[in-house]
Simulated scan of single mutants.
Amino acid sequence: MFTIDILWRVGFILSNPSPLNFCILTISIAAYVWRALFEEKFLQNYAEYRDYMQQVKYRFIPGLF
Rank of each mutant, 00 (worst) to 15 (best):
S15D: 03
F38R: 10
I13V: 14
I24G: 07
I29E: 09
E39T: 02
F2Q: 11
L14P: 01
S15R: 13
R50T: 06
G11A: 10
R59K: 03
N45G: 08
N16Y: 09
C23D: 10
I61D: 01
W34V: 01
F60Y: 03
W8E: 12
K57G: 03
D5A: 14
I27Q: 14
L37E: 07
P62A: 04
F12L: 09
G63E: 00
I27H: 14
Y49P: 05
R9D: 14
T26F: 13
E39L: 12
I4K: 12
L25H: 15
E48Y: 05
A36L: 02
S28R: 15
E48T: 07
S15K: 12
Y58I: 00
F65R: 04
I61R: 03
I24P: 07
F65Q: 01
F22V: 08
I61K: 03
M53W: 08
K57D: 10
I27S: 15
Q54D: 15
D51L: 12
F65G: 00
G63D: 00
G11V: 05
E39H: 09
E40Q: 06
Q44K: 09
A47I: 07
T3Y: 09
L64A: 04
R59S: 00
F65Y: 10
A36I: 00
E40A: 02
F42T: 07
T26Q: 11
L20N: 06
L14S: 02
C23R: 12
G63P: 00
G63H: 01
P17R: 06
Q54K: 15
Y58W: 07
Y52D: 04
V10K: 12
F38N: 05
K57Q: 13
A36Y: 02
F60Q: 00
F65V: 01
F38C: 01
I61G: 04
Y49W: 08
S15E: 06
I13S: 06
D51I: 09
F38Y: 08
F22D: 03
W8A: 12
I6T: 13
I27W: 15
I27V: 15
A31T: 07
A31F: 09
F12W: 13
E48D: 10
V33M: 03
L14R: 12
Y58M: 01
L20T: 11
W34M: 02
S18E: 00
W8M: 13
G11H: 09
L7G: 03
I6D: 13
A47W: 06
S28H: 15
F65S: 04
L7N: 10
G11D: 11
